[in-house]
Amino acid sequence: MAITLKGFALGVATAAVAGTIALSGMTDRALAAGEAEHPPELDWSWTGPFGTFDRASAQRGLQVYSQVCASCHGLGQLYYRDLTGLGYTEDQVAEFAAQYQVEDGPNDQGEMYMRPAEPSDHFVEPFPNEAAARAANGGAHPPDLSLIIKNRAHGFGSIGENFLAMLQVRGYSSGADYVHGLLAEGYVDPPEDVNLLPGQYYNKFMGSGAIGMPPPLYPDGVEYEDGTEATVDQQARDVSTFLAWAAEPRLEARKQTGVKVLIFLAIFTGILIAVKRRTWASVKH
C-alpha cells in the first residue's frame, strides 16, 4: 500500500509540474493577434534545438530590408557592426555603413555636421521623429523592425498546439510566419463588409484587416546579388529570416550553449541518482 500511495503522490507531483508548465503558456496568443487568419507555418532554418540562421537567406533579406523596408521602417536596436554576425567581413560592413549619412557633433565650432556612418553607428533611422514618420505615411507610424519577429509571435493556436511547438523548439517562429504571410500572401481583395479609409489597404493577416502599408514587394523588386530569383515569396522569406536574426542575434549561441548544458545536466543527474540509490540502499523506508 505504501508503494501505491507513493506512486500516487509522485503521479500527482508529475502531473502538477507538467500541467503547470503546459498551462503557463496559456495566455491566449491567437486572440491577442486579433481575429485574423493564421498565416501558413513554414520551416525556418533557425528553429529546432540545433537551428542556425541560413546566412545566404539572411544576407538576401538584408538586401530586401535596405532596398525596400528601410525607406519607412527603422532597425533601431542594431549597429552596422552587428552585420559581421551574418557572415560579412569588417571591410564589407564598413563599406555598407559608409553608404549612409549620420549626424555627429558638435565640432569645435559648436556645429552639428553630417558624416558617413561607421560600423559603430546604429542603423540610420528613416525619419527624424515619429511626427515626421506619420506626416510622410498618411498618419500611420511604420513600426521599428528590430523586434518585429518576436513581438508578433502570437503562437500556433490552442494551448496544446503551443505546447507541442515549444517542445519542438520552434521559439518565436510564428512571428516570422506572420511577417512572411503578411508580405507574401496577405494582400487580397477586401471582403464586402470591410470599409477602408483613404490610404488604407486590406491585408487578411492584420488584426483589423486595415493596413497603412501598400504592398511593398514585387517580383524582381530587388535584384539579388547571388542570382536567386526574387519572387515575392522568396523576398518575404529572406527578409523574415533577416529580421529573425535581427530580433535575437544571440540565438545561435544560446542554442549551442543549451545543448552542452543539457548534456552535462543529464549526465550529472544520472550520477546524482546513482549516489542517492547507493546512499539509501541500507535504509528501510
Partner: peptide, 12 residues
C-alpha cells in the same frame, strides 16, 4: 532558458 525562453512570456 535555452530552448523556449519566451514561451511563458507575452510577445507584446
Amino acid at each position: 532558458v535555452f530552448f523556449a525562453p519566451n514561451y511563458m512570456g507575452h510577445p507584446d
